[in-house]
Amino acid sequence: MKLRNLYLMLTFALVLVLAACGNSDGGDDSDSSAGAEESAEEGSEETVSFENTFEVSPGDGEDRGAEGEEVSETIEVPKNPEKVAIFDLGVVSTFQALGLEENIAGLPKGEGNGSLSDTLSEFESDEYANLGGLKDPDFEEIARIQPDVIMIHGRQATENNLAEFERVAPDADIVYVAADNASYFEDIQEMTQLIGELYGEEEAADTLVEDMNNRIEEVSSKVDEVEDNSMLFIQTNGESSVSFHGTGGRFGYLYDTFGFSSADEFDDASDSHGSQVNYEFIANADPALMFVMDRGAVAGGGEATPVDTLINSTTESATAVQNENIFSLDPQVWYLNAGGYETGMIQIDEVEEAVDSLTQ
């Protein structure tokens, strides 16, 4: 009897040991499976591809004649970044158009919010960090907010700036988002769709692109109907500084996209600030329409220039002067905040207003 009881006790103990081992092995399998699932989730994180193609200026970028280094790479940006630092104010307006303002952690507002056009006035709020000037980023503020993504323009694409971005925000993806002058509106639309994809707003982005294309087609049709659509784009930077932007230049998309003819065939593609001209140049070109952008009114250290300065005894023979077809463009939109969806639509509106005057 005692032996039988002992046998039963040993058998029961063995069962318990085996059960415990089985439970232990099952736990390890469970942990291993959970770990594998976590790894799979991390490895399958959705991203959007941004093509970084731009030129990095040497040093601090002040030596404008120096040859820079070409960058061509693909950056995979994880979807739905919560904190984005945007140095291209045009692209800020694209976030705005898509209703994604809450994802903007900071932007370069400049001193006294001087870099922001009226359409970007909501970003004057302290809710958005001021990241300094367009050419002078506030790296301490960038270090404080630790953005997930830093979106840059050509103004920030210098060796020094890029090195500092990487130093103060080592985990941030740096993405070049500026529109190229040679494919201006196409680039705005492409970036609108990329940002839409980044935040799952593809349908909204497609609608915006369709609306922009419709507006461009409307205005282009009006330009085609004008008998004389010869145009000069004049930039002022103080009364003694008058520049011309022609085909192939910074605002060449006015000719390429809308179909204006250039009142002068001089090509200024080599200088983003245009080519210095005088009043005789305007008179000889004899444009039917003149667009005037006062860079001095918004550029640091510049001097505002009244449009009337361009109307004098030398230029009075020009058709645009005689017919009062001289249009002052918003310099913040065209110069500081260009290259985004909302600001691009404002540009289209201003062009249409000018064209309408030619058909009246």
Rank of each mutant, 00 (worst) to 15 (best):
L289Q: 05
A204E: 15
T314S: 09
K109E: 14
E280F: 00
R295P: 03
L120D: 10
V84F: 12
A182G: 10
A182I: 10
N103H: 15
D267M: 01
S39F: 04
Q146W: 12
V298G: 06
P58F: 02
Y199L: 00
E41T: 14
I216W: 05
D228W: 06
E203N: 07
A263Q: 05
P58T: 03
E353L: 13
F251H: 05
E280N: 11
A338L: 03
V56K: 09
L16G: 08
E70L: 15
D187F: 04
N103T: 08
E159W: 01
I104Y: 10
G200D: 04
S93Q: 11
E190C: 08
E210W: 01
E210Y: 00
V209F: 00
E102L: 00
E350V: 09
E101H: 07
A13Y: 08
D286L: 00
D211S: 13
L336P: 11
F281V: 09
E353I: 12
A297N: 02
L358Q: 10
D256Y: 02
E190G: 10
R167T: 11
G248D: 07
A283C: 02
T343F: 13
G246K: 06
L198P: 03
V77R: 01
G200L: 01
A354T: 05
A169K: 05
A320K: 03
P306L: 00
M1Y: 14
M293N: 14
E41G: 02
G65M: 05
A169H: 02
E350S: 12
